[in-house]
Simulated assay, not measured.
Amino acid sequence: MASSFTKFVACLTLLALLLGTSSAQLTPDFYCDSCPGLLDAVRNQIKLAVARENRMGASILRLFFHDCFVNGCDGSLLLDDTPTFVGEKRAAPNLNSARGFEVIDAVKAAVEEVCPGVVSCADILAISARDSVVELGGPSWNVKLGRRDALTASQAAANTSIPPPTSNLDQLVSSFQAQGLSAQDMVALSGGHTIGQARCTSFRSRIYNETTIDGFFAATRQAGCPRTAGSGDNNLAPLDMQSPTCFDNYYYKNLVARRGLLHSDQQLLSGGFSDSQVRLYSGDSDAFSRDFVAAMIKMGDIKPLTGNNGEIRKNCRRVN
């Protein structure tokens, strides 16, 4: 009883603080009073989506990355193009690649049933990313909430802010530092590639032209990705061939074995400063989980819209 009363008082105190400021800080308890059923509603929909297709967990996690790297975690990636509006879905890093938007639609609909007009799409995406990791066996964390949704998007920023799979180590560090993330954050967040798949176009050059790759691994991947551009471009291969639907530290074990699928992956173990961190994570899954969680929380803090900025979208695909 005392615990429930304490939580109630905390919620009232938080609500008072939020009403008194136009730029509230993000907090895990943001919706404790206004939408107590939020977390259950999101979790149930993500469970269903991952049960239908376990690859979807990786796709949702990737949506969160690609949203946060473009003008902050504001749900701008979720906006559809219209005759008068150009969104981010057709930017090079997302075109024919970003997926899972219908899952976010389903999560939004479920949340609207329990608390209409209260929870932003940006926050729904943040929670969904966490729950996707958990559903695939990864760590959990308290997602900080209170974001509002963007009224605009930037295809140009999406084309320049999201690091491509051809990036070298210096370019990766620069891309992450531009978002306020450290080199250590970059290596930990790259571990998200322990789940999911990539298209042949993303790794063709590596498996045919690079020498920093295990020969057997390259031959295995060549079987499904012809050398000629335009042939099999959309054929998929797992980013982690050992356990592609399990969130674990095999991504780093693969790098040690020179079996990183993308050029940008293998760059993390290429004789540079990040080698020691990769080797640490390859042998210590707890260290990877701890640092991944810390980096995900930090990434979620990138330039959120709060207070009176932005809006709470009724439909994640369009502004109100």
Rank of each mutant, 00 (worst) to 15 (best):
A106H: 09
D170I: 12
I60V: 14
S243R: 08
K314T: 10
S97P: 02
P165R: 06
A16K: 13
Q25H: 06
V119P: 01
N168L: 08
G232Y: 09
I213D: 04
C35R: 04
G224F: 06
R52S: 10
L19R: 12
P36V: 14
I104H: 07
V173Q: 03
A16R: 12
A41R: 04
V133H: 03
Q266L: 08
L48W: 01
I124T: 12
F176V: 01
S59P: 03
T160Y: 04
G137A: 04
P83C: 06
Q277C: 04
T21C: 11
F216R: 10
N94A: 11
C225R: 01
R204I: 07
E113Y: 07
V118I: 15
Q184A: 13
N94S: 13
T220P: 00
P116L: 07
G192I: 01
C11F: 13
A150K: 00
Q242K: 11
D29P: 05
R147A: 02
L169E: 08
Y252K: 12
F292W: 10
G271K: 06
T228G: 07
R279A: 13
L305A: 01
A178Q: 03
L14N: 10
G300M: 00
G180P: 00
N309Y: 07
A295L: 01
V133A: 13
L61S: 05
V134P: 03
G300W: 00
S97R: 13
V86K: 08
V118C: 09
S34G: 11
F176S: 00
Q155G: 08
L95T: 15
A92H: 13
L268D: 11
G224D: 09
T6K: 15
G300H: 00
G75P: 00
L239D: 10
N96S: 15
Q197M: 10
S243C: 06
A106M: 11
A223E: 14
L255S: 07
Y31A: 12
D248T: 11
R52M: 08
D40F: 13
N235F: 06
S274I: 05
A219W: 02
F30I: 07
T6E: 13
C200L: 08
F203N: 05
I104A: 07
E112Q: 12
V42A: 05
N94R: 06
D170V: 14
I162G: 03
A109W: 10
T212I: 10
R52E: 13
F64N: 11
G230H: 14
L12N: 15
S282F: 09
N234F: 15
C68N: 00
D284N: 15
